[in-house]
Every structure is written in structure tokens, then in C-alpha cells.
Design a protein around this nucleic acid. Structure first.
Length: 268
DNA sequence: ATGCCCCCGGTTCGGGGA
């Protein structure tokens, strides 16, 4: 099963880029972030024609997350638990396939940016990360495969940034943010890319400004975190930088996770 | 130190992104 995550920076502005990539990469599941539209304006029909069912948690102009899948999507839960007053559409979770026979629980998440750090946006980011940790802890008690994929807005380590010193005080890289990310890993979750690939410059984002893409001034901020049961199925995880070079590109590129079928485990 | 670029809503500029 191929699962991709991609912050598309407006699903309607990016529709042709996304459809072209789906046809080429043919993932089974796609976790989308930054839809920048409401559910009624989501291009559901265009994705259906391409072979994908969709679960959408949208919002006018900002945020918005979705799950696309070739298989049936069930048990959809929009919103991250832990704060009934949170109106930002940044989390959607669902089951793809049959949970008891090769299916997997997946979440598409768009973690708050948190800049500027002296504003109320930074404590909102940190609290959101605490809510994510509490929710992940509950999911772990099910002892089943799950995948938390999305734009985490966290640079985990210096090798994941073109200029670590320049980003030292930024909400994406300051120690307080990275400590919260490590707390997620410390639950027993696995950063899938780093389980497969130890190389630097595995960037997933390049700013539109200042020639960041041609200069390769990137960040690795889009991640897949896997439960132990999903990690046991991990076959591969890799960034696909090619879409960043297209016309009208998103500033993020897809990360692709490949899981083995769980039934294969019985033959080991 | 700031803006560069790109998207949205809603009008030709402001807010937000990272």
C-alpha cells in the first residue's frame, strides 16, 4: 500500500498538478493539507474520476485537510480532540480498507506554523502538539497499524534545514518545538523517512521567495509517524521533489510511504 | 532589518504562509 502526504497550498489552484502526479505515482492513499477551501468547493468529482474516494474537513480560505483513497473510506473523524473551541480545520482521521484485514487507520494533519513566536500563535502550536500527543497515546492502546502523516511544521534536526543557525529562533526549529516533536517519537512512534534514509537534504518544502528552490534552500517539515504495528510493515519512505519544479507548483512536495500487506507476516 | 512569492477573499489591498 502506497500512502502519500502532500501540502498542496490550495487544492483548487493545484488541481492539475495533483491529478497529474496521481496518474504518474498512483498512490493508494493521499493525505492532503492546506486545501484553502470548504467541503462544498472541494473538487470531489475530479478525484472520483481519477479513482479516489475523499473524506474532507475544509475551511474557508485557510487550512483544510483531506484523505483520498482508492479503497472505501470509513469511520471518518474530523478534528483533533482536546479543545472543543478550536475552529481550525487541521486534522482528519479515517480507516482505509478493512481494519481487521489489511486496512489501516490514517490521519492527515496540518500542524500550526506558530510564527511569530511572541504572538498567541506559538502557544497554540505547542498546545496543539500536546493534544496530538495525547491522541496518539490513545491510538497506541489499540495496538493496530496507524499512520499520522502531514505537514508538521517541525524541522526535526539540523540536517533537515539548509541553514540551521538562521532558523534557530523560528517556531519550526526552536528547541521547545523540537522537544514536543521528540515527545511524540518517545511514545513509540517512528519517523518513517529516517527509518529508511539517513541522508541530509531530504527536503519537503522550498519557499517561493528568494530562489529557494533553485538554490536548494529547503526544509524537511512533512513527515510520516508510524505506530509500532505500522512500522513492522514499513517497506519504504521517500520524498518526491519533482513536483516542485512544475509550473504553478505548491511550495511543498509529496512524501511517499510504502507498507507491506500485513498478511505477508503470516508467511515469515 | 525587510522584502522577495503565492494563495485567498473581495475588490486593486490585507492577511497568512514558513
Amino acid at each position: 500500500m502506497k500512502i502519500a502526504t502532500w501540502n498542496v497550498n490550495s487544492v483548487n489552484a493545484r488541481l492539475h498538478n495533483v491529478l497529474a502526479w496521481l496518474e504518474e505515482a498512483r498512490p493508494d492513499v493521499v493525505l492532503l493539507q492546506e486545501l484553502k477551501t470548504t467541503e462544498d468547493k472541494f473538487p470531489r468529482m475530479e478525484f472520483a474520476v481519477a479513482g479516489y474516494d475523499a473524506a474532507v474537513f475544509g475551511q474557508k480560505a485557510w487550512n483544510g485537510v483531506a484523505i483520498l483513497a482508492r479503497e472505501k473510506i470509513t469511520a471518518v473523524e474530523p478534528g483533533l480532540p482536546g479543545d472543543a473551541t478550536d475552529e481550525q480545520a487541521r486534522y482528519i482521521e479515517a480507516t482505509v480498507g478493512h481494519q481487521n484485514g489489511g486496512g489501516v487507520r490514517v490521519a492527515s494533519l496540518y500542524l500550526p506554523n506558530g510564527n511569530p513566536v511572541e504572538s498567541e500563535k506559538y502557544p497554540y502550536k505547542l498546545k496543539w502538539m500536546e493534544r496530538l500527543r495525547a491522541h496518539a497515546a490513545r491510538l497506541l492502546r489499540r495496538e493496530q497499524p496507524f499512520v499520522l502523516g502531514g505537514d508538521y511544521n517541525i524541522i526535526p534536526e539540523a540536517r533537515d534545514c539548509h541553514d540551521p543557525q538562521g532558523w534557530a529562533d523560528d517556531a519550526l526549529f526552536r528547541l521547545e518545538s523540537r522537544r514536543k516533536f521528540r515527545a511524540l517519537l518517545n511514545l513509540g512512534l517512528t519517523d518513517a523517512l529516517r527509518a529508511c534514509n539517513d541522508k541530509p537534504e531530504q527536503y519537503t518544502f522550498w519557499d517561493y521567495q528568494a530562489g529557494a528552490w533553485p538554490r536548494n534552500h529547503g526544509l524537511r517539515i512533512d513527515h510520516f509517524l508510524l505506530s509500532p504495528q505500522a512500522t513492522d510493515l514499513l517497506a519504504d519512505c521517500a520524498v518526491d521533489p519533482a513536483p516542485r519544479g512544475a509550473d504553478k507548483a505548491s511550495d511543498h512536495v509529496p512524501v511517499v510511504l510504502t507498507l507491506r500487506q500485513p498478511t505477508k507476516l503470516h508467511n515469515i
